[in-house]
Computed example of a mutant assay.
Amino acid sequence: MRKQVRKEVVKTINTLVSHSTYCNKCGKERKSIIEDGGYDRCTDHEIHEFNCSFGYHSNYDGENWNFDLCEDCLKRDYSIV
C-alpha cells in the first residue's frame, strides 16, 4: 500500500527589482527597473560608465579608475555628445 502526502511549499526569492546609478560629477540619479527576464529599463537620464586603466610610465601607474557620467555633464564639460 502507498500513501501520498502533499504539502504546500511557499518559496521566497530575493531578487533585484530596481537600482540607481549616480553621475559622479553632478550627482544626477538614473533609476532602472529590472523587468522579467532581466531586462534593464532606464526610467530617466542616461548615465554612462567609464573604465580607465593606466599603464607603465604614466602619472597613475597601474591604477584603474571607474566612474559614471550623465549625458548632460558629458555635453557641457567635455563637448563629446
Rank of each mutant, 00 (worst) to 15 (best):
M1H: 13
M1A: 13
M1T: 11
K3T: 07
V5L: 14
V5F: 13
R6D: 05
K7R: 14
E8V: 11
V9R: 06
V10W: 00
K11T: 10
T12Q: 08
L16A: 05
V17L: 10
S18P: 00
H19K: 15
S20A: 14
S20D: 15
T21F: 10
T21E: 14
T21R: 14
Y22S: 11
N24I: 01
K25W: 06
K25M: 07
K28N: 10
K28G: 05
E29M: 15
E29C: 14
K31G: 00
K31D: 04
K31Q: 03
S32E: 07
S32D: 07
E35S: 12
E35Y: 09
E35K: 15
D36P: 10
D36R: 11
D36M: 07
G37S: 08
G38Q: 03
D40K: 11
R41L: 13
H45D: 12
H45V: 15
H45R: 09
E46H: 14
E46S: 11
I47T: 01
H48P: 02
E49P: 01
F50H: 14
S53F: 07
S53R: 13
G55A: 08
Y56N: 04
Y56V: 05
H57I: 00
N59R: 09
Y60L: 01
Y60A: 01
Y60H: 03
G62K: 02
N64L: 00
N64C: 02
N66R: 10
F67D: 01
F67Y: 15
F67V: 00
F67R: 04
D68T: 07
C70I: 03
E71Q: 12
E71P: 02
E71T: 15
L74G: 00
L74C: 00
K75L: 05
R76K: 15
R76D: 15
Y78S: 01
Y78E: 06
Y78R: 01
Y78T: 01
S79L: 12
I80V: 11
I80S: 09
V81I: 15
V81Q: 08
